[in-house]
Design a protein around this nucleic acid. Structure first.
Lengths: 137, 137
DNA sequence: TGCTTACTCTATTAAATTAATAGGATAATA
DNA sequence: TATTATCCTATTAATTTAATAGAGTAAGCA
């Protein structure tokens, strides 16, 4: 299941991507338009800034803005920051690999095999989509 | 992330599917071979029986056994019972549809659009695999 | 019949994760 | 220097997941 954090983060990014002007947008505006708890959204936007997706400006006229063009932002990168590993088990994760404690041998693990296919299917979707593709005309 | 319940459930099903004999296999044997808490596995196998994947036999020589041939068991069905919806948000779920509380209109929702693609990619994998495909020679 | 075996069922608890909230600190603008 | 809006840390609430406990039931067999 997609966490609220990811859901809200995606909505906020799409909101920023759909702005004509590149001027900073306030948290309160995004929270209001997208029905998101403002305080919760604060922490999400903060983490998106720290991972290099957003820039921010304090004080009057301040807010958040996209650093890159929407079509330069891969969904793989966004999802990894918001939701964590794309793989459903650490033993098939590209960026967060970890051996399973209960599994003596990955090559003979039935779960590993299936989850590898699932990971690849998901990667394909996320790699072929950017923030620009999320925007609804 | 895949829950332990699902992981253990898949391993147990694969274990049963790989049996030459169709004789019932005891919980304790599966738990031991797959490094699973026996009590936890009990409840998982019980739910797999109640959803029609497994049969059981009590008493001496008892245990669990597959009802269908492994190649007749679609992973879509298994995953829905063990893990729940395949979709990452209820608003794109085929079998567990629900409207999002925070989202006024699905057609104009950026998350909905992406998650629809993800769902389809996952469905494709699960539909093209059966329990028989999980077995490692 | 009575003993053993192994699944059945309910309830509880522990642990971990997620979601939300509170409140003050900091920086930019006018 | 007052106002605005992000920044940061800490805490709490809620939910979900994982594990455990223990008594109950049915089947097989001597």
């Amino acid at each position: 299941m997609l966490s609220k954090k990811t859901k809200y983060g995606l909505k906020a990014l799409a909101y920023l991507a759909s702005q004509k002007e590149k001027a900073p947008v306030q948290i309160s505006e995004i929270a209001k338009c997208e029905n998101i708890s403002q305080k919760f959204l604060e922490s999400i936007l903060l983490s998106l800034r720290k991972s290099g997706f957003l820039g921010s400006k304090k004080g009057k006229g301040g807010g958040y803005y996209l650093i890159k063009e929407p079509n330069q932002v891969l969904m793989t990168d966004v999802m990894r920051v918001l939701e964590g590993p794309i793989a459903m088990v650490p033993c098939v994760s590209l960026n967060f690999y970890e051996k399973c404690a209960d599994c003596p041998d990955e090559a003979s693990c039935s779960v590993n095999k299936l989850m590898l296919m699932v990971r690849d299917a998901n990667l394909e979707v996320y790699r072929n989509n950017t923030l620009a593709d999320l925007i609804i005309s």
